[in-house]
Simulated scan of single mutants.
Amino acid sequence: MTSTILIVEDDKQIRDIVRIALTKAGMAVEEASDGRTGLDLALTRGPDLVVLDIGLPEMDGLDLCRALRKTSDVPVLFLTAHADEVDRIVGLEMGADDYVAKPFSPRELVARIKAILKRSGPAQSGTSGLRHGVLAVDPDRHLALVGDASVPLTAREMELLALLMSSPDRVTPRPRLVDKVYGVNVDVSDRTLDSHLRNLRAKLAKAGCEDAIETVHGVGIRMGQCRGA
Rank of each mutant, 00 (worst) to 15 (best):
T215I: 12
I213K: 08
G55F: 00
I113P: 09
V146A: 11
V188F: 05
V181R: 06
G133I: 00
A207P: 07
N199K: 12
D97C: 14
A42I: 09
G228P: 00
A81E: 12
G218Y: 06
D63G: 01
A28K: 14
S3C: 10
V171Q: 00
A136H: 11
D87F: 06
S189H: 14
A202Y: 08
D40N: 12
M165W: 02
L160Q: 10
K180E: 15
T172W: 15
V151C: 03
G95S: 07
V151L: 09
D87I: 02
L200Q: 11
E9K: 08
G35L: 06
L56Q: 00
I20R: 14
Q225I: 06
L197T: 08
R198V: 04
V181N: 06
L109Y: 07
D84E: 15
A111M: 13
I54T: 01
G126M: 05
H82T: 11
S128K: 14
T172E: 14
L92D: 05
G208E: 02
H196A: 07
P152I: 04
G26F: 04
A25V: 07
L177G: 03
G26V: 05
P103Y: 12
V181L: 11
E31R: 09
A101C: 13
P139W: 02
T37S: 14
G95P: 06
E30H: 08
I116P: 09
G55A: 13
A212L: 03
K102Y: 05
S105M: 12
A81R: 09
Q225Y: 07
R156S: 12
S166E: 14
T44C: 03
L177N: 10
A136V: 10
L22F: 15
G133H: 01
L204T: 12
R66E: 12
L109F: 10
G129I: 00
R170L: 12
Q124A: 15
Y182V: 01
R69Y: 10
V8Q: 03
P173T: 11
G133N: 02
P175W: 13
L109M: 13
I54G: 02
S189F: 05
G26K: 00
T23W: 04
G126V: 04
R66D: 05
R112Y: 10
I7V: 14
S195G: 13
R66N: 04
A149Q: 13
G95M: 08
A32P: 04
R174D: 10
R170Y: 06
E159K: 11
L135D: 01
I89N: 08
L6E: 02
